[in-house]
Design a protein around this nucleic acid. Structure first.
Length: 151
DNA sequence: GCCAACGTTGGC
DNA sequence: GCCAACGTTGGC
């Protein structure tokens, strides 16, 4: 089982939205590295740190779980969608996603600044200025962050 | 709103 | 296939 961190801007989709919906399709990823991680590396049941970006403060706000096998992102086929991609087709979807389901909302946000200050997270991708919206997380890192969030 | 980091595009 | 120009992300 692999562990992940997925970023979302809370103005577009927040942990509260996920708690309400229970489950959502992670549409709109248009970065190849992030796509490849979802398409090739994720399995149903993988734990996910849910991260709010472009918020104040940015940070991890809860836990989710991969809830489907990867499949083509239909928003790439919709000309009215912000995520439309004219090179995507039904046969060659080009962009992939997984469904994600709600697991828990932390009683507090674990801010990015705190992650950067926490022993054991020095090499965590999100503390290394990475813009990747889907990132692998080491199991030890996942545990450290969850403990912080629950405290 | 600024701007650094960095991914993508396209000319050659 | 290189690399300059350009666009986007996202923290601050």
């Amino acid at each position: 089982m692999k562990h992940w961190l997925m970023k979302s801007e809370p103005d577009s989709y927040s942990i509260e939205d996920l708690e309400r919906d229970g489950r959502t399709a992670w549409t709109g990823v248009r970065n190849y590295q992030a796509r490849n991680l979802m398409r090739d590396e994720m399995s149903v049941g993988d734990p996910v740190l849910f991260y709010h970006s472009s918020s104040n403060p940015p940070g991890v706000v809860g836990v989710a779980r991969v809830a489907s096998e990867p499949y083509g992102d239909a928003t790439a086929l919709d000309p009215r969608s912000d995520y439309y991609d004219e090179k995507a087709t039904e046969q060659e979807p080009r962009w992939y996603l997984v469904d994600v389901e709600f697991v828990e909302r932390f009683p507090r946000t674990v801010p990015l600044a705190e992650l950067k200050d926490t022993e054991g997270l020095e090499e965590m991708v999100v503390t290394q200025r990475s813009r990747l919206s889907v990132q692998p997380v080491r199991p030890e890192e996942f545990e450290i962050v969850r403990r912080l969030g629950r405290s």
